[in-house]
Simulated scan of single mutants.
Amino acid sequence: MIEHIALGIAKLERARNLKVMMDNGEVTFAGNRNLKIFGGLKCDSGKRMKVKNRVFFRNKEEALSLGYRPCGHCLKSEYILWKKNRED
């Protein structure tokens, strides 16, 4: 897990570092540290969160292993499965 705030002090520096990581495939999902939710990098819900709460993951397995749940908007089918397994 990589914290967004750890990618740099300035907004532009964070954006550049994140772009490099995305281009290299080091980051494929983003999450909200407080809500323990993760989703795709282009999810509208994720784009609205505060930088201090945003974290990044290499893959779904990493996010799930750290106790994050799939986003109900951009990962709807995974969310439904997660919710069903939780109720059983």
Rank of each mutant, 00 (worst) to 15 (best):
W82I: 04
E78L: 12
L66P: 04
E78V: 01
K36S: 11
K36E: 12
L7K: 04
K84Y: 14
E62L: 02
G67V: 10
K19R: 11
V27S: 03
Y79A: 13
R33I: 06
G39N: 02
M1F: 10
F29P: 00
K84W: 11
A15W: 06
E62K: 03
F38S: 02
L35G: 09
G40F: 01
N53P: 06
L66G: 04
T28D: 03
R33H: 10
K60L: 02
G67M: 11
C74Q: 05
C74F: 04
D44Y: 11
R16S: 08
A30V: 06
R14N: 02
D88G: 12
A15G: 08
E26F: 05
K36Q: 15
I5A: 14
V27F: 03
L41T: 00
S77Y: 08
A15L: 11
D88C: 09
S45H: 14
S65C: 06
N34Q: 15
P70C: 06
M22F: 04
K19N: 14
E78K: 07
C43E: 00
E3D: 15
H4E: 13
A10F: 12
R48T: 13
S77K: 15
M1I: 13
K36N: 10
K42A: 08
E26S: 07
N34L: 14
K76Y: 11
K83T: 13
L7I: 04
I9G: 11
G67E: 09
E61G: 09
K83F: 13
F38W: 06
N85I: 07
K19E: 13
N24W: 07
F57V: 01
L64P: 02
V27G: 03
G67W: 13
K50Q: 14
I37Y: 05
A63S: 07
R33C: 07
F29A: 01
V20D: 09
G46N: 08
R14P: 05
C71D: 04
Y68K: 03
L64D: 06
R48H: 13
A15Q: 12
L41S: 03
M49P: 01
V20N: 05
V20Q: 11
L18F: 02
C74Y: 04
L7D: 08
N24Y: 07
T28W: 01
N34A: 14
R33M: 11
V55F: 04
N32S: 15
K36P: 09
I2Y: 10
G40N: 13
V20T: 10
R69Q: 13
P70H: 07
K47Y: 05
S45E: 13
G25S: 05
R69L: 09
Y68L: 05
K84M: 15
N17F: 01
D88Y: 10
L18M: 06
G31W: 01
F29V: 00
V51T: 15
R33K: 15
G39F: 00
H73L: 14
R58T: 06
C43T: 01
N59G: 01
L75A: 00
M22S: 03
N32G: 15
K47S: 10
R58M: 09
R16F: 08
R86M: 13
E78F: 06
N59T: 02
N32I: 07
R69T: 10
G8C: 06
I80N: 10
